[in-house]
């Protein structure tokens, strides 16, 4: 193997790109599939409640369950719109 071959090999190592991409996607999908089945329904219900007060899109709510040892943490992230529109139900603002 010549020195040239060595550098050509480094440059064309598509297998290592494949490995990196796989490690990322597999880790992501494992997290997703480990989540309980009720999570999408929970997300929908939470959205309905929030929608009563603020007009937001379902994509702006993220519900995630993390298992840390023997305790589970339910994480809820709601991205509110930049400018809060007037509340629909007229809660006196």
């Amino acid at each position: 193997m010549s020195l040239f071959d060595y550098f050509a090999r480094r440059k064309n190592n598509t297998a290592s790109i494949a490995k990196e991409r796989l490690q990322v996607i597999v880790a992501h999908e494992r997290r997703q599939h480990k989540q309980p089945d009720y999570l999408p329904a929970l997300q929908k219900d939470i959205m309905e409640v929030i929608k009563k007060y603020v007009d937001i899109d379902i994509d702006n709510i993220e519900v995630q369950l993390d298992n840390q040892g023997n305790c589970s943490v339910l994480e809820l992230n709601v991205t509110l719109p930049d400018k809060l529109p007037a509340a629909r139900t007229g809660s006196g603002r």
Partner: peptide
């Protein structure tokens, strides 16, 4: 092809899975 870096090696697949 594995030696040329064109294909995932056994150790890579084993590690990922």
């Amino acid at each position: 092809r594995v030696a040329r870096g064109e294909m995932l090696g056994v150790a890579d697949v084993e590690e990922i899975l």
